[in-house]
Design a protein around this nucleic acid. Structure first.
Lengths: 167, 167
DNA sequence: TTAAACTTTCAAAAATTATTGAAAGTTTAA
DNA sequence: TTAAACTTTCAATAATTTTTGAAAGTTTAA
């Protein structure tokens, strides 16, 4: 497999993975492109490479910046803006995990908390609702806490233990 | 908040969470409904409760069965089929994690493996592609292995330690 | 200033994905 | 058998999401 083919394969796979996870294709592809590019790219570069429109590029770059995984870079002597993505995969994982927790997990935890706190009127269906949402609430909270713990420190003892275990 | 409101809130939240994660709304809602229902429900029950068509219900129930989180239940004396979902949240998490790993993570790992193995032609861009996809490959594999480890045994020492740590 | 270089916005169009409902298929009781 | 009870399939339609492209907005060099 040659460079060009490998590059396209990576960008496409990353793109469809993105859409599977609720991130749109263009956004995931832009990030993938920047991720393997040795130097910062301009909007023109990205449009050309991925064959997408200016508007699309602009909007998705903005979203990537909102997520905190892409940033603008000033190139001396150049008028236009250049973009780079976070290149360290660990740091990238940390940011993505944190953002997903904030955007997606937290609101659900809140609803589960509310729903599982309704007053027990003694009926079987109410009992079941409370029991099941409570269990889900506990699970979601532990999973989220676990994610944050694993993700918030570079090399804590848990990670070390896990890494050892997995060898 | 009364039972009916809590129920609707839970089903809706679960439904939109689903679509955010690449699972369609009806599928997530059906699972949510079964999850808080004290007894198995028929297709009629589900259609009525969620206000969706017969075809939609049938197709999504099938998908949930493919995932292994919903099963048919035979009710003596009844002609139609009844459905239940896995009620144990731990077991549910285990199944979902396993399926997502199989369906989504594995194929990506394979592509990363292939792409990061192209021959190094000495150019900067090829070096960057190899380096970055290799790093991503390693990260993805450890994350997947970690997920499987955490999920495949009910109460191993890691889980115990984590639970202790999070208290 | 001004005008060229560049970016953002957003309504319309295109693409994708989900849903419907009725016909076809299957199972079971009699 | 057969016909009623039930489920599945799938082409058509609806809903949602993404993308486009041109106009409006912004920045900077001169």
């Amino acid at each position: 497999m040659e460079y060009q083919e490998a590059k396209e394969k990576f960008i496409n796979t990353w793109g469809s993975l993105g859409s599977l996870w609720g991130i749109n294709k263009a956004m995931a592809q832009i990030q993938a492109l920047l991720f393997i590019s040795p130097k910062a790219l301009s909007m023109e570069d990205i449009m050309e490479e991925l064959q997408i429109s200016r508007g699309n590029t602009s909007m998705n770059l903005r979203q990537l910046m909102d997520w905190g995984i892409v940033s603008k870079e000033l190139v001396p002597g150049e008028r236009k803006e250049f973009f780079t993505t976070q290149k360290d995969v660990q740091e990238l994982a940390r940011i993505v995990a944190k953002e997903r927790s904030r955007r997606e997990i937290q609101p659900v935890v809140k609803v589960l908390q509310e729903v599982s706190s309704i007053k027990d009127d003694g009926t079987e269906k109410t009992k079941e609702l409370i029991k099941q949402t409570q269990a889900l609430h506990e699970l979601t909270e532990s999973a989220d806490a676990m994610l944050n713990t694993l993700v918030n420190q570079k090399q804590n003892w848990i990670t070390k233990s896990l890494v050892k275990l997995l060898k």
